[in-house]
Amino acid sequence: MEKDIMKSEEKVTTPRPTGRGKGEGPQALLVAAIENGTVIDHIPTNKVFTIASLLELDKCSDQVTIGNNFESGKMGKKGIIKIANRFFSDSEISRIAVVCPNIRFCLIKDYDVVEKKIASLPDMLTNVVHCANPVCITNNEPMKTVFYVTDKEKGIVKCRYCGKEQQIEHIKLV
């Protein structure tokens, strides 16, 4: 199940052109390279701070760089977050997929991207979101929620317990 969360990309590009290289524009200087850690790229500009708080980066004692409104060929503008010495588990990434599918997690080791993961909705979400139905048992009992993702494209999930289908954007994270 968890394996579905990410699709590793075959083609890996290196984000080496940062700070210390020659002939770089001023924008590159804004984002420091990290030796080891995670670069989260292609974040929609309005989601950057939501993701920072979901990952509890305010409590992180390692170097964190948060950048926003960078030019991006594909998206127009994008946000980027770099966290030194942090690697995220599959379940952390699936939580992020709930608020913001399709962003990229690049694992950096020794300044190289060693793996890229794209956050996508898994088939099932265990204890990630709350059910929007107030008379659902999950909202009245100390228990884990379980949702089946019925439509990944549209982001529609179905509560295992009350059976109500709901739009994932409208429901709250646990």
Partner: peptide
């Protein structure tokens, strides 16, 4: 509450018969 019977069936080995949940 909706889903109460399903949840009950998950926490016990004794069979549950749902006589209506919400």
């Amino acid at each position: 509450l909706e889903g109460a019977a399903l949840y009950a069936s998950e926490v016990t080995h004794v069979p549950i018969i749902n006589a209506g949940d919400g």
